[in-house]
Deep mutational scan, measured.
Amino acid sequence: NRRVIAMPSVRKYAREKGVDIRLVQGTGKNGRVLKEDIDAFLAGGAKP
């Protein structure tokens, strides 16, 4: 169970979209999950 780095607003956005943030690959600094990562996940998967 890895620790997810994300701003509270991004965590809320993921919850609102029904996304398990632990499944999203973060592309920000130090692997931080960004809102754009949530959108990319919803569009068909995590960014490479």
Rank of each mutant, 00 (worst) to 15 (best):
R22I: 15
N30S: 10
A6D: 14
V10W: 01
G26Y: 00
L34M: 12
K35Y: 13
V33C: 04
Q25Y: 08
K47D: 07
M7D: 15
E16D: 15
M7T: 02
S9E: 15
S9V: 15
K47Y: 09
R15L: 14
V24Q: 02
D39V: 03
L34K: 09
D39Y: 01
R2N: 09
G45W: 07
I5D: 14
A6R: 05
A40P: 04
K47T: 08
K12D: 14
A46P: 13
R2F: 04
T27F: 05
G18S: 11
L34P: 00
R3Q: 09
F41A: 12
L42S: 05
G31H: 01
P8N: 11
Q25G: 10
R11L: 15
V19N: 01
I38V: 11
V33N: 01
R15W: 08
D20R: 04
I38M: 01
Y13S: 03
N30A: 08
E16W: 03
S9Y: 13
K17F: 10
L42C: 13
G18R: 07
F41R: 08
V4M: 11
N30C: 03
R32L: 10
K29A: 10
G18Y: 05
K17V: 13
I38Y: 01
G44F: 14
L23G: 11
Q25V: 08
K47C: 05
R32N: 15
I21S: 06
E36C: 06
D39K: 15
V10L: 10
I21D: 07
E36T: 08
G18A: 09
G45N: 08
P8A: 14
G44P: 15
I38A: 01
M7P: 00
G45L: 10
G45S: 12
M7F: 06
N30Q: 12
R3T: 07
R11W: 09
K35P: 14
G31L: 04
A43N: 12
T27A: 09
E36R: 10
S9N: 06
G45P: 10
L42P: 03
G31C: 09
K12S: 13
K35S: 08
E16T: 06
T27N: 13
Q25N: 05
A46H: 02
N1W: 00
S9F: 13
E16A: 04
K17L: 13
L42R: 07
K47W: 04
D37W: 00
R3N: 14
I5V: 12
F41G: 08
K35W: 11
R3P: 05
K47P: 06
G31R: 06
G26A: 10
K47Q: 09
E36P: 08
K29M: 03
I38N: 00
V4N: 09
D37F: 00
D20N: 07
D39C: 07
K29C: 05
R15H: 15
P8W: 06
N30Y: 10
S9R: 08
K17T: 08
T27G: 08
T27S: 11
V33K: 12
F41L: 07
R15F: 14
R22E: 15
A40N: 12
G44D: 12
L34D: 02
A46T: 13
R32I: 05
M7Y: 07
R32P: 05
A43T: 11
K12C: 06
R2Y: 15
F41K: 11
G31P: 03
R11E: 12
D39P: 01
V4D: 15
